[in-house]
Nucleic acid binder design. Structure first.
Lengths: 198, 198
DNA sequence: AAACTAACTGGAGCAACGTTCCGGTTCAGG
DNA sequence: CCTGAACCGGAACGTTGCTCCAGTTAGTTT
């Protein structure tokens, strides 16, 4: 797509100053609203918070997914970049994988309703889903491959499937204190290890 | 709650014949609409299919969850009853657990969007969630306990958490052919086994 | 500096949906 | 057959996503 605005470098000479300003305002407003009302908050609410009209918000972010992506882009990026670093620093590839997944879960869980949005009705949010996966799946694949290589886990696990599964397990975390996705993700990780661990 | 209509025995002497008729029509219509449009289908669509007004549907099933519950009640019941039977018939408690989970997953997966609904925004569907768990959690607990007793799996797993996790893993199954919840559920089950299997 | 134009803005407006409410209708008992 | 209580249908209201365009403004040209 266009490599312009959301990266946030120079004002991109053909973009008007007020438009840039509005985009920033919108991102800030959306971020605020997301923490209180979740990523499903009514567009009108975000527009009101930013003090702009509906047209403006749709002009800058035609779909909700694009807005959510823009708001969380740098965090996703951080998560992606942490992958190789963990692989280098952690004691074992399996540890690296575990820690990376922890990071990922942290991200999903601290954003109110993000996990729900990611998985729910795939038509909305499709772009969000895509962006997450495009960026993070290779990282996951690398960690997975390293762990297989080291003999920590058995081969055959698809990165895509694992990431979706983890995302799914994070859905609806707030609804019941008895449900803690981390425990299950731990079990899942255990299941990934070689059966007879030599 | 009231042990009247949905059980389907005698017409419950204080309920009018047309009301009973409508309730049946509604259930049939809802079942049909659910398979084509998912459990999120617009109320109006169900009402139209049944040839009744909106008021009627709300009178019989004040919340969507109650309608869904009523439609699937006998299948949930069947799943619940299968638990003890599997425990008696299967080769090991672990096998019984595995088969029962298979049944559960079948149920969730064949109903378009049921899993999504079960987990999504907890306020709607809350009753559905509750009914599922009230009925099925004890069964799951029994299977789990038996498997622990037999030394097949390690102790400490909460039935509630396991069921929610499995339900979550089934969310959004149709959106991508690369995602097959069963594979992950298998991994999860492996993770439940004792680490050092003696 | 003034005029011009392309981009941007705001919100009215439409459609879809959930839900409530009540006037009219119909069943069941007398 | 008569009557009232239960039931029915759908109009109506509030909320939401999204489109569309008349009016405004920023940046450029003369």
């Amino acid at each position: 797509m266009s490599a312009d605005s959301p990266a946030g470098r120079a004002p991109a000479r053909n973009k008007r100053a007020d438009a840039v300003r509005n985009e920033q305002t919108l991102l800030a407003a959306a971020a605020e609203v997301f923490v209180t009302s979740g990523v499903d908050a009514p567009i009108r609410q975000i527009a009101a918070r930013a003090g702009v009209g509906l047209g403006t918000i749709y002009r800058h972010f035609p779909t909700r997914a694009e807005l959510v992506t823009a708001v969380y882009r740098h965090q996703i990026e951080a998560c992606a970049e942490a992958g190789p670093r963990l692989l280098a620093d952690a004691g074992s590839p399996f540890d690296a994988l575990r820690q990376w997944i922890d990071l990922f879960v942290d991200f999903l869980v601290t954003k109110h309703g993000l996990a729900d949005a990611l998985q729910s009705d795939s038509s909305r949010f499709a772009a969000l889903h895509t962006y997450f996966l495009d960026r993070l799946e290779p990282v996951c694949a690398q960690l997975l491959a390293a762990a297989v290589e080291a003999g920590d886990i058995r081969p055959g696990t698809q990165p895509y499937e694992l990431m979706r599964g983890i995302g799914n397990l994070c859905v609806g975390r707030d609804s019941d204190p008895r449900y803690d996705p981390r425990r299950l993700i731990d079990v899942l990780l255990q299941g990934l290890r070689r059966s007879g661990p030599a």
